[in-house]
Simulated scan of single mutants.
Amino acid sequence: MAGTDYTTIGIGTVLVTYLAGLFIGLSEELLTRGLVVNLLRRSGHGELTVMLLSSLIFALLHSTNIFTGQPVLTVLVTMAFTFVFGVAMYLTLRVTGNLIWPVLLHALTDPSTFLATGGIDTEAPATAHPTVALAGLSVWVFVILTVIALFLVRDRAASGSREAVR
């Protein structure tokens, strides 16, 4: 968020982008971490299965980007990243026990990425703010930590824990 030059974008675009991000985050999280997670848990699937399947469904939702004319490789990379992001949002849900936190994180991630990289209606700026470059590096740290977390998840959820989606 700090790496975006908001003066060149315009307040209207910024507000609409964050509002759209809120709706996107809300709808995608309600579907994948809300509905899918609850259905999988109620059908008796273990913690690891719920995390992986809900994240896979989240990634598959992004396969439709192929219909916007994006190159296949771009769509596949996006799907790989959204799978990892889905795992992180699942872990956020699991740790907090409340769906609002993945919704808010998701609602901030998409718009800030679009605005910082010029993804609204232009290509990424040639001279991006140093914090954008730092964010790019932090994505790799995020991916590595999320993959490590995959191995730490036990295939069960303790009864009475904060597993219920509120």
Rank of each mutant, 00 (worst) to 15 (best):
E163Q: 13
S27D: 11
L26M: 12
A59H: 01
T4I: 12
A116T: 13
V36Y: 07
S54H: 01
I9R: 05
T32V: 07
S54R: 02
F81W: 07
L15A: 15
D155M: 04
L22D: 04
V143M: 03
L15F: 14
G160T: 11
V165A: 14
I57Q: 02
I144L: 09
H129T: 10
L52W: 02
V75K: 00
V132P: 06
R33C: 08
V87R: 00
H45K: 15
F151S: 05
V77M: 04
T64I: 11
P102C: 09
T113H: 12
G136H: 10
P125M: 03
I120V: 13
V143A: 06
S55Q: 00
I120W: 06
D155Q: 03
S43V: 04
V147G: 01
T13P: 03
T74A: 14
P130K: 08
A126F: 02
L104S: 10
F83E: 00
D110Q: 08
Y18M: 10
V95R: 14
V50H: 11
Y18A: 11
A116D: 12
H106L: 10
I66P: 06
E163S: 15
N98G: 07
L150R: 00
F85R: 00
T49L: 11
M89Y: 05
T92S: 09
P125I: 07
A133V: 14
L137Q: 12
F83N: 00
Y6R: 12
T4G: 07
V75T: 04
S112T: 15
A20S: 13
G44E: 05
M51I: 07
S161F: 09
G10L: 03
I120Q: 08
A80Q: 03
A20Y: 06
Q70R: 06
G119I: 07
L91S: 03
N98P: 05
V50L: 06
T146V: 01
A2L: 12
A128W: 03
S27N: 14
D121N: 14
L137I: 14
V132K: 08
T4V: 15
S27F: 14
L56Q: 00
L15C: 13
E47K: 13
A126I: 09
T64C: 04
G97I: 04
V103F: 11
Y90K: 01
R41A: 13
L152Y: 03
T17Q: 02
G69E: 08
V84H: 00
L91R: 03
V50D: 04
L145A: 04
F142K: 02
T92P: 07
L104F: 15
I148D: 00
T82L: 01
A135T: 13
H106V: 12
V37G: 04
L35D: 08
P125Y: 07
Q70D: 13
I100F: 14
G160E: 06
F83M: 00
A128R: 11
S27P: 05
T113I: 13
V84R: 00
G69C: 07
G10P: 06
